[in-house]
Computed example of a mutant assay.
Amino acid sequence: MTDFAMRRTMMVDTQVRPSDVTKFPIIDALLSVPREDYVPDAKREAAYMGENIALDGGRVVLEPRTLAKMLDAVDIQRDEMVLDLGCGLGYSSAVIARIADFVVAVEEDQAMAADAQANLSEHGADNVAVIAGPLVEGNAKNGPYDVVLVQGAVEVVPPAITDQLKDGGRICCIFAEGMLGTVKVGYKIDGNVVWRHSFSAGAPLIDGFQKPREFVL
């Protein structure tokens, strides 16, 4: 029988801590959430490898290092509300739920949203609401949010998303740039978002977050 708890500890010790992620709430959350329960059944054995895990529709569960460094960069506080865009089968939301006050998880794939809700409920993550709907629309109804995370790569962030961020809030995305992406954190100051480079990481581009294509005659 696979010792997933041992693999979880090894994941933190070999992938997360060496990447300078040392905040206790993040380490504790990664050690507590069973990643193997939030990936497709056929990929449970690969749950703790240092790579993105493919889901349907070109989406992924971000590699542990990337998610951990994104969480470190936005520094979620215990009393904050987080919008998790593209939650997949619920892993990122389960981790965030152990750090934040409440998580609104948006997933546009209806089947994945249902599975995410089932997974989160099974593990008692009762401070997460899974919403099935377009990722590019976010979820204004439950906003505004202290923090927004996008679980995949983007070329642009629609104003509809940044409008849902509180003034003083943070948003973290992987911007697709060539072969490897750049993770940037946006800080909303006086209604405008100022982006700062954080680290390099890669993920597939999420549909709907592409730049408009220019047509040349």
Rank of each mutant, 00 (worst) to 15 (best):
M1Q: 06
T2N: 11
D3M: 07
F4T: 12
A5P: 00
V12L: 04
D13F: 01
D20C: 02
D20G: 00
D20Q: 11
K23W: 04
D28I: 00
A29Y: 08
L31K: 08
L31D: 05
S32K: 12
V33H: 07
R35Q: 07
D37S: 14
P40S: 04
D41C: 00
A42C: 06
A42Y: 06
K43W: 03
R44S: 11
E45D: 15
A47N: 12
A47L: 10
G50D: 15
N52C: 04
I53C: 03
A54H: 01
A54E: 10
L55Y: 11
G57C: 11
R59E: 03
V60G: 03
E63Q: 12
P64L: 08
P64V: 06
L67P: 03
A68T: 13
A68Q: 07
K69E: 13
D72G: 09
A73W: 01
D75N: 12
I76R: 02
Q77V: 00
R78W: 04
R78N: 02
E80P: 04
M81C: 06
V82M: 03
V82N: 04
G88K: 03
G90R: 10
S92E: 14
A94I: 10
V95S: 11
A97P: 10
R98C: 06
I99A: 09
A100C: 12
V103C: 05
V103F: 04
V104Q: 02
A105W: 04
E107P: 01
E108R: 09
E108W: 10
M112G: 02
A113T: 04
A116H: 04
A116D: 04
Q117Y: 02
A118F: 09
N119E: 12
L120R: 13
S121L: 07
G124E: 09
A125I: 05
N127L: 10
V130F: 11
V130G: 06
I131N: 07
I131K: 14
V136L: 08
V136P: 01
N139W: 15
N139M: 07
K141C: 04
P144I: 12
P144G: 11
Y145V: 10
D146V: 14
V147F: 11
A153K: 06
V154W: 04
E155S: 01
V156H: 02
V156A: 07
P158L: 02
P159M: 05
P159E: 13
P159A: 13
I161V: 13
T162Q: 11
L165I: 09
K166P: 05
G168L: 08
I174Y: 02
F175V: 10
M179D: 11
G181T: 00
G181D: 01
V183H: 02
G186W: 01
K188R: 15
I189W: 02
G191L: 08
V193I: 13
V194L: 14
V194T: 12
W195R: 07
A201H: 01
A203N: 00
P204K: 08
D207H: 08
D207E: 11
D207N: 08
D207T: 13
G208F: 02
Q210Y: 02
K211Y: 01
R213W: 07
F215D: 06
